[in-house]
Amino acid sequence: MFDLPIEGAQLMALEFGDIVDYFSVYTGTLFVFALLFTVLAIVSLPEKPMDIVFGGDAYYTKDIPLDLLRFQRFMAIACGLATLGAMASGDIFNFTLFSSMIGITNIGIVAAVRNRHVLEAAFQYGIVAMVATVPLFGGAAIVLASTGTLSIWALAGAAAVPLLAKIFLVLGVMGEGMAPFYIGKAEITRAPGAPYVLMIHVSSLLLFLRVVEIVLTV
């Protein structure tokens, strides 16, 4: 696997029974990015959004309730941990599980915001993330049925995975992480609560980079 141009050298392997996580130069870089943003979500203080009234001197600050803030931080950290798992995973089914966890924590980050506009966008996002589990897990099922294994180590370079499974995996990640549908994201990130809300962007971007690596490897 590590002789493929996309991977780079092998840095480390972590064994969890049949699921053997790996860190190549590529996935290791993504992992470090995810780790960095998770640490940022843990240590940073939330923003205090300020609205300036147009055409005047008046301004007012938005008050974010403490319980909402704590919940958002909890979800942002959970999202970061799911991203860490998805970056290092060496198993197709394990990767799809972490992807769907990223999808659900992304909804969780904005679910409690009291803003009609944000919630409507999050609702649309939620429907797509829910439907996307069908191609996502369907892709993993086709991989197991047609090759008899799920380990990326065994599948790497063999080109045994059918095109349909690869398309399903990419479609599933597109739905969970919303990588190309940035309009849904742009509306969602109007929610107050940076830097926790930014975790949505980071996780989906990293997830999409990872699925590209998997599709090119298997």
Partner: peptide, 21 residues
Amino acid sequence: YNTRGLDTVVETSILFTAFAI
């Protein structure tokens, strides 16, 4: 629970996250 134990852990975490929300 043994050879694919990490999957079991992640599945439960997804459920837990959904219940938390």
